[in-house]
Design a binder for these strands. Structure first.
Length: 350
DNA sequence: CAGGCGTGGCT
DNA sequence: TAGCCAAGCCT
């Protein structure tokens, strides 16, 4: 612990109460609201979560309420937020909270970390901010903030660097006055002042202590992560409507858009001919008309959506398997469908 | 353990 | 515009 750690912690703890945004999960702050908001916020902008948090809490007010819900209803409440495994993890976490913790969200880091979807950051965040424990937290904000304060230009993916940041964060929370103020203050500073581009150093309470500022290197730290190359994915979807209903299939339980529903589709890394698409579809189709082609960029995939409208051959029956169903066009909001899936359904004019 | 996992905003 | 980024976790 360096002497400046004391001053760093004090500066953050003084700054935060005067500059905290009025975010819904801070008032009232309960372990359950903290857990739900933390899951929603993983790799997701605050502005996206703002619109979705209270409706989710209204629907699932307690762990018991979520635990007794159907997973499909949970996914439907999550649709459009992305990273859908989080919704399934939260659902399973609620069931474990009922089974193992008598329906009360634990606030110790070890118990929290044992829940699905809860890792070191999320557990530390709830344990420290809700429970007041001296647990460190390191998210993207804290990593950037501390890298700049210490003028450490290592790659953010470097594991040794990441361990170093956790060590800095633990030192700070060990010596601070109030862990909730320190930890939430660090995140808030990173989110609103020590931003990735154009940080507001003139408003930063750490400016006098910030080594990268003193050395004029703020803009170089942290260095950009090089993004992974995106693979091409061709998604051939057929929108089949009949008597005000549309035919949907459920995606596989793992992988992209796991468990979500969509217009029946064939996926391939390469371009397919129309006849190949027809051949691979599990339904006998009478006609197939191209409606639209759209691009979607995902984290690691470049998806081309080839959207067709189609009709089944006369008398054709859709196999009555689980994972295929007719859904009224007006009831699509109740079925978990990704934004790409909604775009496909909306592009069809038939 | 490096890569998979969504979406939209920003530059 | 093409790429980077966001309150990470899981396998």
């Amino acid at each position: 612990m360096s002497p400046s750690d004391q001053r760093l912690a004090a500066a953050i703890e003084q700054w935060f109460p005067l500059n905290a945004r009025d975010l819904p999960w801070r008032n009232p702050r309960t372990p359950w609201r903290a857990l739900v908001s933390e899951l929603m916020l993983q790799q997701t902008q605050v502005s996206r979560v703002l619109e979705r948090f209270e409706p989710f809490m209204d629907r699932f007010a307690t762990p018991c309420s979520l635990a007794s819900a159907d997973e499909q209803d949970v996914l439907a409440m999550w649709q459009g937020l992305g990273y859908y495994r989080r919704a399934r993890s939260l659902h399973r976490a609620a069931r474990e909270i009922v089974d193992r913790f008598d329906g009360e969200v634990p606030i110790d880091a070890v118990s929290l970390c044992s829940l699905p979807g809860v890792g070191r950051y999320t557990a530390g965040s709830i344990a420290s901010i809700v429970g007041g424990a001296r647990e460190a937290i390191v998210d993207g904000n804290v990593m950037r903030l501390l890298a700049r304060v210490h003028c450490d230009g290592a790659s953010p993916t470097d594991r040794v660097f990441i361990k170093r940041v956790w060590s800095w964060a633990q030192n700070l929370v060990d010596i601070c006055e109030q862990p909730p103020l320190l930890n939430e203050g660090m995140m808030e500073l990173g989110a609103t002042v020590c931003t990735p581009t154009l940080p507001s150093c003139d408003k930063c309470p750490l400016a006098a202590l910030c080594q990268s500022r003193l050395q004029g290197r703020v803009s170089e730290i942290p260095p950009p992560k090089r993004s992974a190359a995106r693979q091409e994915l061709h998604h051939y979807a057929v929108v089949i409507k009949r008597r005000g209903k549309v035919l949907l299939e459920q995606r596989a339980a793992t992988g992209l858009w796991a468990g979500m529903w969509q217009a029946p589709a064939i996926e391939s890394q390469t371009i397919l001919s129309e006849s190949e698409v027809i051949k691979r579809l599990p339904f006998p189709l009478q006609s197939l008309r191209i409606q639209k082609v759209m691009q979607r960029t995902l984290t690691h995939r470049n998806v081309t959506l080839h959207i067709y409208s189609g009709s089944l051959k006369r008398g054709a029956r859709v196999p009555a398997t689980m994972g295929v169903k007719w859904v009224p066009v007006g009831g699509l909001a109740d079925v978990p469908i990704s934004n790409a899936g909604h775009a496909v359904l909306a592009a069809d004019n038939s």
